[in-house]
Design a protein around this nucleic acid. Structure first.
Lengths: 143, 143
DNA sequence: CTCAAATACTTCACTACCTGAAACAACCAT
DNA sequence: ATGGTTGTTTCAGGTAGTGAAGTATTTGAG
């Protein structure tokens, strides 16, 4: 019901800039993933697992997709020795996906190559970064 | 070669917030597209065509993918009457993809439902929006 | 305790997306 | 004229994603 008619040019420009940031972020993420012979989906899943093991079902929730889809992505990562399936001692229905040593190394290296929004941010002064942080926080607040 | 070791917590938080904005933007874009029975790729292509007809090759460049991929996406949009292929009078090799009347209507409706970064922006004052714009501009400047 | 419902995962069939190679037509420069 | 280049399509092959059906396990109601 809000969504003012005829948004002002300033707002339009900011929306456009955000679109550019999104596009740029994606490009860099995909290319960083490709640099490790991973697809975007594989990279996202592996990053999650580098923090902690997760049941397939939780992975699906985090990735906002169906569990049947996660099966395939984990299959492919498992075939490359980056991830393992382990039984959950507490519930024999669930399988924990856990990153292998190699998987964690790849995930770490991936993070390191994600320089976007680290380099560009270097061009901003501290007060500017604070202002940016606050603006982003407020944009995300109203969900 | 820059990429300072041990980035400060403020920078890390901003990077994280940008990640959230990107995720949110994508969710909303995909769901707006799905609301019109379009996939994300179809929606992006149709949006481009709603501005001007484009040769297949240009579409591939804009979408950053291979021309052979564009063929399929245009095929599916054409099957639904949202896009047409027209010969380019100036060069008989090229085919112009042009949005039909219906296609332009769908594209317009899609834009309207893309309220992200319009609603959230409403929470920011004008000086804040200007600061945000400048920060984004500078982030994108150094490519 | 028992057994029916719910939960976790996988498999299958299907569609979309995406790439790279090969084919074909049309253009263009020599 | 003709050989190289360009624009598009087709094809094979692989990943991503959904939804339905199937199996195993857990849980809860009686």
């Amino acid at each position: 019901m809000p969504t003012p008619r005829t948004p002002d040019p300033l707002t339009l420009e900011v929306v456009d800039l955000i679109g550019s940031v999104v596009a740029r972020y994606h490009e860099e993420y995909e290319s960083a993933a490709a640099g490790h012979a991973l697809t975007g989906a594989q990279a996202r899943l592996l990053s999650l697992l580098s923090l902690e093991p997760l049941p397939m079902r939780r992975l699906a929730q985090r990735l906002k997709c169906e569990p049947s889809n996660v099966t395939g992505i984990v299959d492919r990562l498992e075939a490359r020795g980056l991830v393992e399936r382990r039984p959950d001692p507490a519930d024999r229905r669930v399988k924990l996906a856990v990153a292998t040593e190699e998987g964690r190394r790849v995930a770490r290296s991936l993070q390191d190559s994600l320089r976007f929004a680290r380099e560009p941010l270097a061009g901003l002064s501290e007060p500017e970064r604070i202002a940016l942080r606050d603006a982003l926080r407020r944009m995300l607040a109203e969900s």
